[in-house]
């Protein structure tokens, strides 16, 4: 894994280069929510270096599942490549969560700042952060304040910040939902390219997004939650949304989602 052992300076391209993602297995023995069993003996495996997508009606528990993996919610057991223990993850949410008082570059370096890296070492990483900003199409915006950027640009900064963490597992909770159709399409392409090789969990409520990006697409349904599927669309990601096979899958997925919504809604 450690490729650059010789150079003492951080390689500006290293952050963008693929970080091989491990296989991640989550087991939830029992989790209750509002007195109701939400999960019961639930198993979810994220295959190594692949995109796994979770679909389902609002409130079914997609986000809770992601939070269990992130360690933000107690009650899940994780195995990374077969070994028990917490997972080194990076996290990207629907809100960009940029800190308005920091510049774009300092936001990209936020993880290092929070882990107490001294200012001097951080400034050595600045070049790497700017390289990542260039990769997401924001060259020249390093000194800008988040408030001066559009929603799509801000979410691209969030993507750069996620990449800067160099974690082998990336968790994304509806990261493109608040964006317009064109921006969303471009960001999906960009994420697929830049996160290649990592183990990715994408929670989404867009069937087409799941089919464009997912190697495995699960539908969550019922109380306690069942995982239905997975659907495994063919071909490289990001897939062409106009491909007939994808559109057929979308129709099938829509049916499953409707059934899931009926199974999940209280009687």
């Amino acid at each position: 894994m450690a490729i650059s052992t010789v150079s003492s300076r951080p390689d500006p391209l290293r952050a963008a280069a693929p970080v091989p993602g491990p296989e991640l297995a989550l087991t939830v023995p029992s989790l209750r929510f509002d007195g109701q069993p939400l999960f019961q003996d639930l198993h979810l495996t994220l295959p190594a270096g692949r995109w796994t997508c979770l679909l389902g009606p609002s409130g079914v528990g997609k986000t809770t599942l992601l939070r269990l993996i992130a360690g933000l919610e107690p009650g899940g057991q994780l195995r990374v490549d077969g070994r028990a223990g917490p997972a080194a993850v990076a996290f990207m949410a629907q809100q960009d969560l940029l800190l308005p008082w920091l510049s774009v570059r300092d936001n990209v370096l936020l993880g290092h700042r929070l882990r107490g890296m001294p200012r001097g070492e951080r400034s050595a990483l600045a070049e790497q952060a700017e390289e990542l900003l260039a990769r997401v199409g924001l060259a020249g915006y390093a000194q800008a304040r988040p408030a001066t950027l559009s929603g799509g640009m801000r979410q691209r900064v969030a993507l750069a910040r996620t990449l800067m963490e160099q974690r082998p597992i990336v968790l994304m909770d509806e990261p493109f939902s608040a964006l317009d159709a064109v921006t969303r399409h471009r960001l999906q392409d960009l994420a697929a390219e830049l996160l290649a090789g990592r183990t990715v969990l994408l929670v989404t409520h867009h069937p087409l997004e799941a089919l464009r990006l997912g190697h495995r697409v699960w539908v969550l349904a019922g109380r306690p939650v069942r995982l239905e599927g997975p659907i495994r669309p063919d071909g490289q990601i990001p897939r062409d949304p106009a491909a007939p096979a994808l559109l057929r899958l979308q129709a099938r997925l829509m049916d499953e989602l409707l059934a899931s919504a009926e199974a999940t809604e209280p009687a």
């Binding site: 360690g71 996290f91 949410a93 809100q95 969560l97 800190l99 929070l114 882990r115």
Partner: peptide, 11 residues
């Protein structure tokens, strides 16, 4: 959201 992001980042 900021606090949870910070927690995942290991702050």
């Amino acid at each position: 959201g900021w606090l949870e992001l910070a927690r995942v980042m290991g702050a």
